[in-house]
Each structure stands twice: as structure tokens, then as C-alpha cells.
Amino acid sequence: MVTTTPLEAELLEIAGAVPDPELPVLTLQELGVVRAVHAHGTDTVEVELTPTYTGCPAIEAMSLDIERALHAHGVRDVTVRTVLTPAWSTDDISAEGRRKLQEFGIAPPRVQRTTGPVPLTLGTTRTLTAPPVQCPHCGSADTELLSRFSSTACKALRRCLACREPFDHFKEL
């Protein structure tokens, strides 16, 4: 068990308060991508950051923003390290993060909490067991998929059949 010092907790909060470069309504803490902060003395800090998608281009912007925020707080030497394990999941988005997504017009990812290492819930030979995606505008569960990939890899484009509005859905990962 690694203990977190009060300084580390404070710096973690600062790093976590950085807004996500692609979805600025969310902080990195709400997105669940800042894993840990390790302080060596008061001047040298290492931050563990995990990517949402392996190829997520935002990771470099996130790293720079974290470095900037910690420098502004007086930390001289900041290293942001990318960690893959455990793999990020949309289940890591906080309840507050989900609420903000919804408010922003993006249907939040459904909670999976699957047991077993690799959930196979997609595709023609597999069945989708998750509850329906609800329209973030009117709350209707009667929505259809328009495209599996929207403006970014993490979103799909759907349309509400009740209010007819198209909307983005943050896909489960």
C-alpha cells in the first residue's frame, strides 16, 4: 500500500482540476485519467496519466496542461508519465462527470462493471445486454444509432426518435 502525503493529495487535486482539452466541461479527475502524483521533496513531482484510447491525440495536450498547472503552483520539476495498466474504462468517469456530459448534450456511457477480463458485448454474433442509450435532451430511451464513430473515436452519433434531435453518445469502453 502506497501512502499519499498531504502534499501529494494537494497536487493531485490541482492536476485533476485541469480541464479535458477535448471536452472542457469535464476535468481530468472527472474523466478519471489522473492516476497518481508522486512527490520527491517539494520540488520534483511525477504524475501518472492514463490515456482514454491508446491513440488518443489529446494525451500530449493533457500532459502539457498538467505541467503548466503544477509549475504555476510553484513545482519546478514536473514529469508526466503515461501508464496503460489498469486500462482506462468509461466506468472511471465520475458521477459528476456523467452529469456534466448529459448537461452538455452528450449521452454518458452506460456503466458496465463487468466481471471477467474481456467483455464481449458487441456485434452480430454477440448480444448487447446494456440498457438503452437515453436521449440527453428529452430522456427518451427510443434512440437509434446513426454512426459508430462521431467527431472523435470515443463518441458515436445517435438520433432521438421522440424529439428527433441528433446527439453524441460517449461509447462504453
Partner: peptide, 23 residues
Amino acid sequence: APLAAKAVKEVAYHRDHAEQWTL
């Protein structure tokens, strides 16, 4: 294992995309 655990979830969408288009 670390990369595969992450990538397998992304590739599930690639596979789904290909299967749906094949149909």
C-alpha cells in the same frame, strides 16, 4: 497484457464496424 487489455476494447468496435458493413 497491458497494451492488449486496453486495445482489445477499441478493436471490439473495429470488429463490430466491419461486421455491420459486411452484413
